[in-house]
Amino acid sequence: MTIQFKDETFRDDYTFKNSEWAVNRFPFPFHEDSYMYSVNMEPHQSFRPGSVFEHRFDVDEHYLSEMRDRAQVLAEDPLRCQSLPHMTLAGWDLLELIMVSKSEDYPDLFQLNRDDNNWHWINKPMGIDQKFTFLDEATLPYGPMEYITRQTQGDFAVLDQRDDNLWMDAGMITTQADWSLDFDIGMNFFEWHAPVPKAHELGIFVRALKFLLNVQQGLPARRLNWTMTVNPLLDTSPENYSKWGVQKQELTLENMPDKMHLRVELQTFFRLPRSNALVFPIRCYLIKLGEVVTVPKWGRRLHRVLRDLPEELATYKGFIGNRPKIIEWLSRYDDGAPTSPGIWPD
């Protein structure tokens, strides 16, 4: 189908919303009525045509508006995009991966013509027509990682692999769930996950790292993660916590369906060929609670998950204060009926 790109905002007047198409393909993250951390990895293979799992880099109706929001974030704070000096080659790897994937998966939107190192990239939705020399930074307006991630939805952490660990040595991070690239850049896998409660004790990170160190070229992996966000804010960075934190107080039972959002991250992991780095795209999908409950199974299940979530996790995910209100509102959509297994609508 042809994607109808929307003109909407993720700040100020918050005009973001999902079409029925986008709601029905939303990556609802709970496959059962409860939640605990796990290393929930699976191969990132094309799955369920039309879903967000069909293509390597999903493009949806929010594409142009998300890219405009990213440009605004970067104009206000250029430190959201950083790359340590040894990561430039990984940036070219990433540019190649995205250009090749998008031109193959969305030939009507993106085109890539390659003649040796002379490349021609056309991004029709954004109106970009760029001829450049692969591996020659001087021929692009930005470094390779920044250039391509200004045209691709989702955050990107580019991880160097050495000493049996992964190091957060580059990234484009403008749609994050409250962590700072500028603070975390240069950290290893355990260090940047240090603030996460419980998961270290459960051995989650040791197992996850072991898995990730062995991700092979051409065999990407994926998992889902989630949190809750008041207002459709892509940029819930610690840098701007001063601005968005206070908005949590505005939540009422009346504005709940429009103001409270389930925020889901589709996290994928690709091995990069020249640098042997691992790229970790973190794609943020937002859905209003009012949109969630249009799928009866999701309304019931979200109520049960949030109601039974351990306090520590609700605190870490930042909605402990609003949890009673959220549960009260969602309970109206939970008739106690059993839910079917798996994440998809019935």
């Binding site: 700072s180 240069g186 260090e191 610690p238």
Partner: peptide
Amino acid sequence: DHYSRRIAAFQGVR
């Protein structure tokens, strides 16, 4: 307690 070796500092949040 979150600490960055690169900045040699802990993180302060409002």
